Computed example of a mutant assay.
Amino acid sequence: MSDILTQNDLMPGQLLARGVCRHLYSYDFVSVEEFVPTSGRRVDVMGLGPKGEIWIIECKSSRADLQSDKKWQGYLEWCDRFFWAVDSGFPADLLPDDTGLIIADGYGAEIIRMGPQVKLAPARRKVLLQKFARHAALRALAARDSGFTRPF
Rank of each mutant, 00 (worst) to 15 (best):
Leu66Cys: 06
Asp65Val: 13
Lys70Arg: 09
Gln73Glu: 11
Leu5Asn: 00
Trp72Arg: 02
Asp28Trp: 15
Ser31Pro: 00
Gly108His: 09
Thr99Val: 15
Arg42Lys: 15
Leu66Asp: 01
Trp55Pro: 03
Asp69Pro: 04
Val45Leu: 13
Ile4Glu: 09
Val118Thr: 12
Gly74Ser: 05
Phe83Val: 02
Asp93Phe: 12
Gln73Cys: 03
Val32Thr: 14
Arg134Ile: 11
Ser26Glu: 15
Ser61Cys: 06
Asp145Pro: 06
Ser31Gly: 06
Gly40Asp: 05
Pro50Glu: 04
Ser2Ile: 06
Gly49Ala: 02
Leu138Lys: 11
Gln67Ile: 13
Lys131Ile: 01
Phe83Cys: 03
Val32Asp: 00
Pro12Gln: 07
Ala137Tyr: 07
Lys126Cys: 06
Arg125Tyr: 07
Lys71Asp: 10
Arg41Thr: 04
Cys79Glu: 05
Thr38Met: 03
Gly47Glu: 04
Val36Phe: 15
Arg134Asn: 10
Gly49Ile: 01
Thr6His: 11
Ala137Gln: 15
Lys126Ile: 10
Gly115Lys: 05
Asp87Ile: 14
Ser62Trp: 10
Ser62His: 02
Gly49Glu: 04
Pro50Arg: 15
Pro12Met: 04
Asp87Ala: 00
Asp93Trp: 13
Asp44Met: 04
Phe35Tyr: 12
Ser31Asp: 02
Thr6Lys: 05
Tyr27Asn: 09
Met114Ala: 06
Arg41Gln: 08
Asp105Ser: 11
Asp93Glu: 04
Ala143Asn: 15
Lys126Thr: 09
Trp72Ser: 14
Gly52Leu: 12
Ser146Asp: 02
Tyr107Asp: 10
Gly108Thr: 15
Gly47Asn: 12
Lys119Cys: 00
Ile111Arg: 08
Ser88Pro: 15
Ala104His: 05
Glu34Asp: 07
Gln14Phe: 03
Phe148Ile: 11
Tyr75Trp: 05
Gly108Phe: 08
Arg150Ala: 03
Asp69Arg: 09
Arg144Gly: 01
Pro12Ser: 04
Ile102Ser: 00
Asp65Cys: 13
Pro12Lys: 03
Arg42Phe: 02
Phe132Thr: 10
Phe35Cys: 02
Ala109Lys: 00
Ala140Ile: 14
Thr99His: 06
Asp3Val: 12
Cys59Ala: 05
Trp72Ala: 08
Arg139Gln: 15
Ser68Glu: 12
Cys59Ser: 02
Lys60Met: 03
Leu76Lys: 10
